[in-house]
């Protein structure tokens, strides 16, 4: 089997469901980093994707579920020829796109405060971040283009 065929075979989409507990963050970010590398990203880009996933899953656990540990977070990683799509689903309180206000880093530096940086990291490290709701579930979808 030629190497490119082997790589294509490994690149099937896959799904992971975790309890809404921060102890699983390391597992999820490790998976996101490895998936990014498999998609063809360099180590530096893969590390940024894993941080964005950490922030997104943390937001779901801490804010959508309010820290309650008996829920679940579903992650769906989809490989295309040009992108890695990471879909994250939950049944907690969703974010609507028009509720998002990203802090301005320049203002943040002038007036430091605790919190509010996760969404900014997600938007800076990914090419697209969007939120939606469907049939009682909320989704955060992040897309990274493969250079």
């Amino acid at each position: 089997m030629c190497p490119s065929a082997a790589l294509r075979m490994e690149k099937s989409d896959f799904r992971l469901i975790i309890p809404s507990q921060t102890r699983y963050l390391n597992l999820v970010t490790g998976l996101a980093k490895r998936a990014s590398q498999l998609a063809g990203m360099d180590d530096s880009t893969a590390a940024k994707v894993s941080i964005a996933v950490d922030e997104a899953v943390t937001n779901i656990i801490m804010h959508a579920y309010g820290g309650e540990e008996d829920h679940s977070v579903e992650l769906d990683l989809r490989f295309t020829d040009t992108t890695l799509e990471i879909h994250m689903w939950h049944t907690g309180v969703g974010i609507r796109g028009n509720q998002i206000v990203l802090p301005d880093p320049k203002e943040y530096v002038k007036h430091p405060r605790k919190g509010g940086l996760g969404l900014l990291l997600m938007s800076r490290f990914m090419d697209e971040v969007r939120f939606s709701e469907e049939q009682g579930r909320s989704e955060c979808c992040m897309i990274k283009n493969i250079a």
Binding site: T58, R113, L120
Partner: peptide
Amino acid sequence: SSAGLGAIMGLIETVRENKGDILLCNLQEN
């Protein structure tokens, strides 16, 4: 992650008010 950055940010005013500071070294690329 931003949780850790928040922990640093939460103390910076206190240490600087007391003539101290928080410095960083040996940062890995990411």
